[in-house]
Design a protein around this nucleic acid. Structure first.
Lengths: 121, 121
DNA sequence: CGGTATCCAAAGCGATACTG
DNA sequence: CAGTATCGCTTTGGATACCG
């Protein structure tokens, strides 16, 4: 941890960052858009199993307001709206990778110490 | 993103990792324990402003069950219980740092593109 | 096609009181 | 000191129906 942050400000900073990712479907949407993919509303709806229109639009709207997702409206009939990540949204990739790496250390770390196995989420 | 993961498994992996950190007070507790600090229940209660006993014990118990926090009971009267991070819990630091770094890129990224400022959490 | 609107159930959280 | 128990509010998410 760099010395730029106090214990409290770091906690708040990470907390507000995590808030942007909280929501039942945000990460799923994110991973569908990673890699520069540009998808229509109906594409996302079809490829994300179990999501409702309400939740899809809600999560997309929040991520758009947060600057993670960009919404592209093509004014035509029938309507066509596409979604992709902003540069900043794309930049999430390494951070999520770090989190994934941490999660993968779980078993090795548990084996190294004598601590109990613990609950598996 | 390494090629070890599919779009879906990566989403699930990160999702389950984030689940371990979700909870109103977990990050705050985490940051109080980072750096190898060993704190008593009452220490945490006093240093974390606004937390109730119920929430403190609840978040600690979950993090303990998840293998992030270790609980050390000293059998004596009056009771004395201490909490610290497991090795794996300590290993969260770089991942959270990456998230903090991403969050700090927000303004620069917004300035670079012509996208609207967006909601500030 | 790409949304809104409404209603309801479940989970999260806070306040308060009590206990070994 | 270090918890547990209970209650009620608030937030979140799912199901369904409707609209431009």
């Amino acid at each position: 941890m760099s010395s730029t942050y106090t214990r409290e400000s770091a906690a708040e900073g990470v907390e507000s960052a995590l808030k942007l990712l909280e929501g039942r479907w945000k990460l799923v949407i994110l991973f569908h858009l990673f890699g520069g993919h540009v998808l229509r509303f109906s594409d996302l709806e079809r490829s994300i199993e179990g999501i409702s229109q309400k939740m899809l639009i809600q999560q997309l709207r929040q991520m758009e307001a947060d600057g993670i997702v960009r919404r592209i409206v093509h004014h035509q009939v029938p309507p066509k709206v596409e979604y992709c990540l902003t540069d900043w949204g794309q930049a999430l990739c390494p951070a999520l990778d770090a989190l994934l790496g941490w999660a993968s250390q779980r078993d090795r770390a548990a084996a190294a110490s004598e601590s109990p196995p613990g609950r598996v989420a």
